[in-house]
Structures are given as structure tokens and as C-alpha cells.
């Protein structure tokens, strides 16, 4: 494929994705609201992702602390370890790593599920059964992703900080109360709010890209695999782009 054709294909897909996102916005405002399916998706997307997100969060906090400690000791600021780890986790690493894990688990799962439903005509069957498949399948999943990722991110931050506490205590003795006070004292409103807000956008990106890839799946079962794979890759890239934009915007607004 020539560079020009690739560019055309990229722009075409970006246009289709934008149209898909616009359709999501217009559909989610209009009744009928698929509340039962939304709650079911919240359970699947949120509750069932918690063990994985929690485990990775815990390891992330522990490893980050263990890796930072030698440098902190060299500079003679070992006592600042809880504060540094706290800021790093809450402001940046927690939301981004949680979103990436979320993209890997939920983005691929949505892409594969909708892709499979598409190629086996289940989406057409839904339409014939008096259901708006876009509302039932896409709106509920994207809304669930938007609502669940911020919650998962907060929980992951908390578990990461507990991992960091254990990491601090591997070669030291700090009480949990002291560790927690140091972390909380180091964090300001400007650290917490932008980090929390951006997780809603990460959730939207993972949900809408997973649904877009699955809903437009082609080429039979091969297409299902491709949908799942490309949903993860594209959502991961978009998460980093959104993160970059979020940093720039918060900087412009004076939150940094």
C-alpha cells in the first residue's frame, strides 16, 4: 500500500470513528434507555476487571517504590519517598496504567464480542427483534466504560499506594498512618482532580474504539481477531495522546 493510500485509509477511518462517536452522543441522549443492560455491563466491565486492575496496581506501587528507593537514598531524600511515589501514582502512573490494562482487557473483549455478533448476524437479529442494536450494545458498553474506569482508577491508586507502603517497609520501618499522612500531605487538589477527570476520557476512548472496531468487523472470523487486536492497539495509542493533551490543558489552565 502506498503512503498516499495509507493516509487516505487513516483519514477515512478517523472520519468513520468520529461519526460513530457522534452517533453515540446523539443516541445516548434519546430514550429508550437500556438501564438493565447498562447495569449488566457495569458489572462485567467494572467488577470483573477489578482483580486484574488491583493486582497490576499493587505490583506497580511496590515496584515503583523499590526502584525509586536507591536514587532517593543517594540524594539523601529517602524520607520523601512516600510523597514522591504518591504524586507519581495519583497524578500519572495510576490512571494511565489502569487505562492501559483496561484497554487490554475490556477493549479487546468488546471488539471480539461485537465482532463475533456482527459476523454471526446477531446484531441483525437484534434489529429484527425490535431492538436498536447501537443503543443496546454500543451505548451501554461505552457508558459503562466511562463510569467504571474512574472508579477502577481510584481503587487501583489506593491498592498501588498500599503496595508502595509495603515497598517502603521492605528496607525501613514506617507506620501505615505516617506513610498515609505523608502521601496525603504531598497531594493537592490540582493533583487529584485533573487525573480523575482524564480517566472519564480514557474510559470513553476504550469503549468507543472497542465498539467501533467490533461493530464494523468484516471478513468473518479473521475479522473478529483483527477487531480485538486493533481495538487494543488503537485505544492504547489514543490513551497516550489524550494523556498528553490532558497535561497540556491542565498546564494552560494553571493546574500544574
Amino acid at each position: 500500500m502506498s503512503n498516499e493510500t495509507r493516509l487516505q485509509a487513516f483519514l477515512s477511518e478517523a472520519g468513520e470513528l468520529s461519526r460513530f462517536a457522534a452517533r453515540f452522543v446523539s443516541q445516548c441522549l434519546r430514550p429508550r434507555y437500556e438501564v438493565a443492560e447498562f447495569i449488566r455491563q457495569c458489572y462485567i466491565i467494572g467488577y470483573q476487571s477489578l482483580p486484574l486492575v488491583g493486582l497490576t496496581g499493587f505490583i506497580m506501587g511496590l515496584v515503583l517504590t523499590l526502584q525509586l528507593r536507591p536514587s532517593m537514598v543517594d540524594y539523601g531524600v529517602e524520607s520523601q519517598l512516600p510523597a514522591i511515589v504518591g504524586i507519581a501514582i495519583v497524578r500519572e502512573i495510576g490512571p494511565v496504567i489502569t487505562a492501559l490494562i483496561f484497554a487490554g482487557k475490556i477493549g479487546s473483549s468488546i471488539g471480539a464480542e461485537l465482532g463475533s455478533m456482527k459476523v454471526t448476524e446477531q446484531i441483525d437479529a437484534m434489529e429484527v427483534s425490535g431492538t436498536n442494536p447501537f443503543k443496546y450494545l454500543v451505548v451501554t458498553r461505552v457508558m459503562a466504560a466511562i463510569c467504571m474506569l474512574p472508579i477502577l482508577s481510584v481503587l487501583s491508586d489506593a491498592i498501588s499506594l498500599y503496595g508502595a507502603y509495603l515497598g517502603v517497609n521492605v528496607r525501613g520501618a514506617t507506620s501505615f498512618h505516617l506513610f498515609w499522612v505523608e502521601v496525603v500531605d504531598s497531594l493537592a487538589f490540582n493533583d487529584v482532580l485533573p487525573a480523575f477527570i482524564k480517566t472519564f476520557f480514557f474510559g470513553f476512548a476504550v469503549g468507543i474504539i472497542g465498539c467501533f472496531k467490533g461493530y464494523n468487523s468484516k471478513k468473518g472470523t479473521e475479522g473478529v481477531g483483527h477487531s480485538a487486536n486493533s481495538a487494543v492497539v488503537l485505544s492504547s495509542v489514543v490513551i497516550f495522546i489524550l494523556d498528553l493533551l490532558a497535561v497540556q490543558i491542565t498546564d494552560l489552565l494553571g493546574f500544574n
Binding site: 455478533m117 454471526t120 448476524e121 446477531q122 441483525d124 437479529a125 437484534m126 429484527v128
Partner: peptide
């Protein structure tokens, strides 16, 4: 009623 070629049962 519509009977799909692939049955289209919800998995």
C-alpha cells in the same frame, strides 16, 4: 419472522 442462515442465537 426471520430465520437467519447462521441462526444468530445470542451466545
Amino acid at each position: 419472522g426471520f430465520l437467519f442462515q447462521s441462526n444468530a442465537l445470542y451466545d
